[in-house]
């Protein structure tokens, strides 16, 4: 469920080697892909990682593959679009830095809080009544919720791809050698890393975070120790969905468009990231998101983008067969 737990399931020596391994991996990919593609991969990875966190947190705490999570992310892109276009009345890039900062704060705050709320509502009505039911039941309702969200968005915003004003100017950039480094990409990566760091600290250091960890380990024992299980699970959905909301904001900032069908593919990739990283393990999910992005971008940069999906899911199968606990180990790996 957390970094603290990860260290208990992963042997000490490999945990110590992890930062070195990541650094070596990044250096190697930078060398192979070149700076342009390296930045593309980091940016895509940041988005996958933010979505993957929601999957892994929910799985960690109630062992549910929340198939609606990808659609919460999709819906959040529309909330972000609505906030930018209607609430803020923006139709293009914001060149003034103070205005941009205020706009970004509002978009992130509105989207993340609305989506967090949506996550709580979904949990309360679609999953909580089925908490003691066979595991297949909540899985089916999750798929149902996924379709409901898609249909609501399709009804409200239509079935076509819609354009969203990119409020961070895409022209803002600086040169590193031959490569143009857009501020937009740096912002996306930085925002994701900050959110992930805050989440890690929250889970590791706060009382609520501890309650989440103990609930993931043993729900009944936690209840006996005085942990409010319903509240803890609700909070998990709140945080996971709010992170998906942040990912949605990042999506519209970076791509400048969205569509109601967005959640399925992105959700599947992010779920794969969560499994690769070790489902239930937040640091692993983030790592898995970046790994998948590097594989996809790597495939495209060698002209094999066509097979990107195949390569990612082959990797998933290999992991499930040979290392079912994922990159960093899983608190519930035996069931993943």
């Amino acid at each position: 469920m957390s970094a603290a737990e990860a260290t208990t399931t992963v042997p000490r020596s490999s945990a110590a080697r992890l930062p070195l391994t990541i650094a070596a991996f990044l250096a190697a990919t930078l060398f192979v892909l070149g700076l342009d593609q390296f930045i593309n991969a980091l940016t895509l990875g940041a988005i996958y990682a933010l979505i993957a966190l929601g999957y892994t947190m929910v799985y960690g705490i109630i062992e549910l593959i929340n198939f609606a999570h990808g659609d919460v992310y999709m819906a959040s892109t529309f909330v972000a679009m609505f906030t930018i276009q209607t609430l803020l009345g923006r139709s293009g890039a914001i060149e003034s830095i103070p205005e941009l900062v205020i706009a970004l704060v509002i978009v992130f705050a509105v989207t993340a809080s609305l989506m967090g709320l949506a996550g709580v509502v979904i949990e309360r009505f679609a999953y909580r009544p089925l908490r003691r039911a066979p595991r297949l039941a909540p899985l089916i309702t999750a798929i149902g919720v996924s379709f409901i969200i898609q249909n609501i968005i399709q009804f409200a915003f239509g079935p076509t791809i819609v354009s969203v004003p990119q409020i961070i100017p895409i022209s803002w950039s600086f040169m590193v050698g031959e490569s143009r480094v857009p501020i937009l990409n740096l912002f996306v990566v930085a925002a994701a890393l900050i959110l992930m760091a805050v989440l890690q600290l929250f889970i590791a250091r706060t009382r609520t975070g501890r309650a989440m960890r103990t609930t993931a380990m043993d729900r009944d024992a936690s209840a006996l120790m005085g942990v409010d299980i319903n509240r803890t699970i609700m909070l998990t959905f709140l945080i996971g969905s709010a992170l998906a909301g942040a990912a949605g904001v990042v999506h519209v900032l970076y791509y400048g468009n969205t569509q109601f069908g967005l959640g399925f593919q992105s959700g599947l990739k992010a779920f794969t990231a969560a499994v690769l990283g070790g489902i239930g393990n937040t640091a692993g999910a983030a790592l898995g998101g970046f790994l998948i992005a590097f594989v996809e971008v790597g495939a495209s940069s060698f002209g094999y983008g066509r097979w990107g999906g195949g390569i990612v899911f082959t990797l998933l199968v290999i992991f499930l067969v040979f290392r079912p606990t994922g990159l960093l180990g899983s608190s519930t790996g035996d069931r993943a």
């Binding site: 070149g34 342009d36 593609q37 593309n40 991969a41 940016t43 895509l44 999506h251 791509y255 069908g261 967005l262 399925f264 593919q265 992105s266 996809e296 971008v297 495209s300 940069s301 002209g303 094999y304 983008g305 066509r306 990107g308 999906g309």
Partner: peptide, 22 residues
């Protein structure tokens, strides 16, 4: 210069765009 394919539903075209550029 190069040929690739990305199926419907793909959201990220930044890598193929960078490839076309390089």
């Amino acid at each position: 210069a190069g040929r690739d394919g990305l199926p419907v539903g793909t959201t990220d075209y930044s890598a193929v765009a960078a490839e076309a550029k390089s």
